[in-house]
Lab assay of single mutants.
Amino acid sequence: NQASVVANQLIPISTALTLVMMRSEVVTPVGIPAEDIPRLVSMTVNRAVPLGTTLMPDMVKGYA
Rank of each mutant, 00 (worst) to 15 (best):
residue 51 L to P: 10
residue 29 P to H: 05
residue 54 T to C: 05
residue 3 A to E: 13
residue 30 V to T: 10
residue 30 V to K: 07
residue 12 P to S: 06
residue 7 A to W: 03
residue 57 P to L: 04
residue 7 A to S: 09
residue 22 M to A: 01
residue 47 R to I: 13
residue 59 M to C: 05
residue 16 A to Y: 07
residue 30 V to H: 14
residue 64 A to D: 13
residue 26 V to P: 11
residue 6 V to Y: 00
residue 35 E to P: 07
residue 31 G to S: 01
residue 40 L to D: 00
residue 61 K to Q: 12
residue 12 P to Y: 05
residue 52 G to L: 04
residue 55 L to V: 10
residue 8 N to R: 09
residue 57 P to T: 05
residue 62 G to Y: 08
residue 18 T to A: 08
residue 43 M to R: 07
residue 45 V to H: 00
residue 44 T to M: 12
residue 2 Q to H: 11
residue 59 M to E: 01
residue 31 G to I: 02
residue 35 E to K: 07
residue 41 V to W: 00
residue 44 T to S: 11
residue 50 P to Y: 11
residue 5 V to H: 00
residue 13 I to S: 12
residue 2 Q to F: 12
residue 52 G to D: 14
residue 46 N to A: 06
residue 11 I to F: 03
residue 22 M to G: 01
residue 31 G to L: 02
residue 51 L to F: 11
residue 62 G to D: 14
residue 47 R to L: 07
residue 5 V to G: 01
residue 42 S to I: 03
residue 54 T to R: 02
residue 56 M to S: 07
residue 22 M to I: 09
residue 58 D to G: 10
residue 63 Y to L: 05
residue 17 L to T: 00
residue 14 S to F: 11
residue 14 S to T: 11
residue 14 S to R: 11
residue 20 V to N: 12
residue 24 S to R: 07
residue 40 L to H: 00
residue 13 I to M: 13
residue 8 N to G: 07
residue 10 L to K: 11
residue 44 T to R: 13
residue 1 N to A: 15
residue 13 I to V: 12
residue 39 R to I: 09
residue 57 P to D: 05
residue 5 V to F: 03
residue 41 V to A: 05
residue 43 M to A: 06
residue 61 K to R: 12
residue 55 L to N: 01
residue 54 T to V: 14
residue 8 N to C: 05
residue 59 M to P: 01
residue 37 I to E: 00
residue 27 V to E: 00
residue 12 P to V: 04
residue 60 V to N: 01
residue 18 T to V: 06
residue 49 V to W: 03
residue 29 P to W: 04
residue 59 M to S: 07
residue 53 T to S: 10
residue 61 K to I: 14
residue 49 V to I: 13
residue 58 D to Q: 09
residue 11 I to N: 00
residue 46 N to M: 11
residue 24 S to T: 13
residue 4 S to L: 02
residue 19 L to Y: 11
residue 39 R to A: 08
residue 9 Q to C: 07
residue 29 P to F: 03
residue 48 A to H: 15
